[in-house]
Structure formats: C-alpha cells, structure tokens
Design a protein around this nucleic acid. Structure first.
Lengths: 251, 251
DNA sequence: ATACAATGTGTTAATATGACGCAATGTACA
DNA sequence: TGTACATTGCGTCATATTAACACATTGTAT
C-alpha cells in the first residue's frame, strides 16, 4: 500500500487512501492481484494515496497502472470503507522506519484512514505484475486461495466480488478479462467462476450470442483435446452500445 | 453543510465530508430534503463532517437524524465524489466569518474535500425537517423542481436517483417511503415516480403481490373520490427475507 | 477403427411478461 | 333518486423468455 509513491505526506490528501481489487482470469480461475510486503510478509491489496491535486479516479488509475502496467482498463469505484478502527495500530514505528518514512511523517501514517475501493478487470495475459520495490512481491492469487490480508482488505475484496457478481447481469464483463480471441466455453467458465455456480452450456450460448456483442471468427482453437471450439471476439462498437443501455437479463 | 456540528476542525476527519440525498414521498411526488443557507440563499444537500472517532456510516446516520429527527432509517452509501476542484473557491473568508468559523480554521474549510454520498428513504409523514440554525431553511422539494445546488451536489443527487432506480428492481423499496397503511395505487405511483414512466395497473398488481411481502388489510381507504381502494401493509418478516435473497424481476 | 469427451444445434414444456376487456364500486351532479 | 364517470379489482390471451434436455458432430487418444 505504500511504496508506489513516496512524496512528502503534505502532498497527499490526508486520511484518505485507495485500494484496488484487480481481477484477472487465467487457467479457469478468477485471480486477484495481491502484494506481499517485505517487512512482515503480510499480504494486502494494491493501494496508494491521493495526491492533493489529483482526482480520486485518477489516483485509482495510477495505482492500477503502477501495478499492472496497463492503461485504459475497466476500473470502477464500488464502495468506501471508513470504520473508525480499521487501520488502528497498523503501522508500527518499526515498520515505518523499514519503509523509509522519516519520523516526522509517522503521525500522518498512523492517523485514521478512510479508503476508497475500486475494482478493475484486466486481461491477464497482458498484465505484467510490477514490483517497484525489490522487497515486495506482486502476485496473482486464485480468489479461492487468498491468504489472510491486512486491515479490512478481506472485506474489501469480498465486497468487490459481490459487486462484480451483481454487475455481471447488468453489463457484458468478459470483454475486459479475456484475450482478444476466445471460445464460448472459455467465456462460460469465466461467468461460472465469477458467479460460483454452473450454467447450462446450451442456454448460455443462446443468451450470450443474443446480446449481439460477439463476432464468430472463421477460426477454431488449436491444440485442444476433443472437438475444437470456435473462436470469437468482441464487437467493440456493439459492446459500447450495450454498455450504455445496460443488460436486462440475469444468469 | 456546516452548521449541524461545530467542533474544532481538529476533531474531524480532514478533507472528508458526508452528503445525504434524503428521499421522501408525498402528494405523488418524490421529494428531496434540501437546505438553504442564510448566507447567500444557496441550496445544498444536507451534509456534515466525520468525527475523528466516528464510523463514516455513523456520521451519515447523524446527519440524517439531525435533519429529519428519524432513526432506524434505510440509509445506503452509493458513491464517493472526489474530483480535484469540486470545492475550490466554495467558502469565501466572508462566508466562513458568517458561519462563525474562526480565522485559524479557515484553511481547513478551504482545503480540498472528498465527499461520501449516502441516500436515505424516509417516511415523509414522520420526518420533521429540522432547523438548528434560524438562518437556515430545510425544505422538501419535488425532485423535478430542484433549484441550482452548490458545488457538485446536483451530480450527487442525480447519481443517487440513478442508484435508487437500479436498486428498485433489486429490492422492495416502498417499505421505507410509505406510511404503514397504503394502497396498491399509491405504491404504483411511487414506483412510477421513481422510475419516471407509467406502469400498467393490472400487471403491477400481479407482480407486486407475487413478491409476497404485502398483507391485504380488511380495510379500505376513506375519503376518496370514486371507488375506495383496499389498504395494505408490508410484512416485515417476509420483507427482510426478500431483501436477503434479492429480487429478480424488473419493472 | 473405435471409444470418448467436448462442442454445436434443436426441441419442448413451464413460466413470465405485456397488452388488453370487463364488471364492481363509490362520488358527483342533474 | 338515479345516472354518468373515474377508478379499482380481477381475469384473459398472445407472445417472449427461461429451464431442461436430446442428439448429431468433431477431433483426439488408444
């Protein structure tokens, strides 16, 4: 949550931070980008502070860009977390010293923080987890196998997933999580993973194609066992159109 | 936005405020509770600051309670607003002096603020608009006739209404906006007002009763022209149940 | 060649939705 | 007093949507 930026605390909006739940899809798993600090090997969501002259949305984009190297990503604010004790006793003086925070800045870091939660959907294959501090680890983790997280990050993650599930029925989400060319079974697995339940193959195909944002390519997936599924891509124009109007149906 | 609380600024979370969009329903109109300050007759959403030792949700409850006298209300955080310039040049030194802010506190008020938006649904007949400063006016305004508002409050209001519309299909909202006993036509008018379009009478009845949260009373509305409609009330238990599971259908 | 696992397409019954018809009720006014 | 009228309550029907399932097709593995 810290090392990405390191200005003087006066240059940041006080008492306010950003935390991002960055989702990716790979190996039929919904993964989340997590960070392990070198100080105490604790895991956390990637986050950062808000420059005093920066929109909160822009700050979120910065965090995302810093961690994944990606731009123009699907990014959405979903909730703000601000119970009183949420970051109480989080930073010890030792840890701040470890992170290179000068003593006169300690008070700022130890004060009460409210955090704005954003979630992002990224194309796993294009995202490169970035480390700007060698003692940090940035890692994709299956959302079923998330370790203990600092502060209330677990609750933030849960809320993000909950939001994603709800929004899945309101808009076509796959576009942001899959590579350019993909198969319908792939897309279905993505939906099943997010929703946490099985869907009927045939009904899924009918519904997803009925939306009208998929283009069937004259190409099949290669190197697969059994029958090779057809490849599809998203029709970006129609996708934008549907995003505006919203979807009606559920899954 | 100010006068509700007036502690020393050090007792508040810096750079962070709460704004509430309080909805009520009366005279077949969806109304919003607005505040006119005595200083320059400008209108704003009721809001306040967050005590350093107070959860943000609690702060929102406080604002609501201070303005409507109501407790145990449906209150929901919907978005956080934080573009850089949103409160730039909002408070002049003159205005702060008018509000009784000592000069040494000016810097705090003039600094950049991020605001957390909450919306509330209240029973109009039970809510008593409260004025804690005689120079202020607290008033219910038809959401179609909202005057110019300060800062980005118009955008906050719009987002709140948008959220309410979406949530209307996800949960039974009427419970919080209507008096204990009400008629189906009343409830329909509420839905129509929120959604901004007409619904078919007969289909509405079918759908709303199918949810199973309404209890038909052995009583008719009195003092009405034409045929007296039956009175209903909400079944609080079933309502809670449905809230948990969520609704599927749309309107 | 044949078994197998997964894909592509079609069918059908149940349910939900939207668009109406019509009788019943209670007030207003001749 | 009784007739017009707006509004309510209940029902019908055609159509759209959904869920559940059958079957032929394809390409790999043995």
């Amino acid at each position: 949550m810290l090392k990405t930026q390191l200005k003087n605390s006066k240059e940041y909006q006080p008492g306010l931070s950003i935390d991002c739940v960055i989702f990716g899809f790979d190996d039929n798993q919904l993964k989340v980008l997590l960070i392990k600090t070198g100080y105490d090997d604790s895991w956390s969501l990637p986050g950062g502070f808000i420059s005093i002259d920066e929109d909160i949305d822009t700050a979120a984009v910065s965090v995302l860009q810093a961690r994944t190297g990606l731009m123009g990503i699907f990014l959405r604010q979903f909730a703000t977390f601000g119970t009183v004790g949420r970051n109480q006793n989080h930073f010890s003086s030792d840890s701040l010293a470890y992170f290179g925070i000068p003593p006169e800045e300690e008070k700022w870091y130890k004060s009460r923080f409210v955090t704005i939660g954003y979630y992002a959907l990224v194309n796993f294959s294009k995202a490169i987890p970035r480390i700007d501090n060698p003692s940090e680890t940035v890692q994709w983790v299956d959302h079923h196998k998330v370790p203990a997280l600092i502060l209330d990050h677990r609750a933030i993650l849960d809320r993000a997933l909950e939001t994603l599930r709800t929004e899945l029925s309101l808009m076509p989400v796959g576009y942001n999580l899959l590579p350019e060319k993909f198969t319908i079974p792939d897309l279905q697995k993505l939906y099943e993973t997010i929703l946490g339940r099985k869907l009927d193959r045939r009904n899924f195909l009918r519904k997803i194609t009925a939306i009208g944002i998929l283009t069937k390519l004259d190409e099949k997936k290669s190197n697969v066992a059994h029958k090779a599924p057809n490849l599809y891509c998203f029709d970006k124009n129609k996708y934008e159109e549907v995003l505006k109007n919203g979807l009606t149906q559920g899954w």
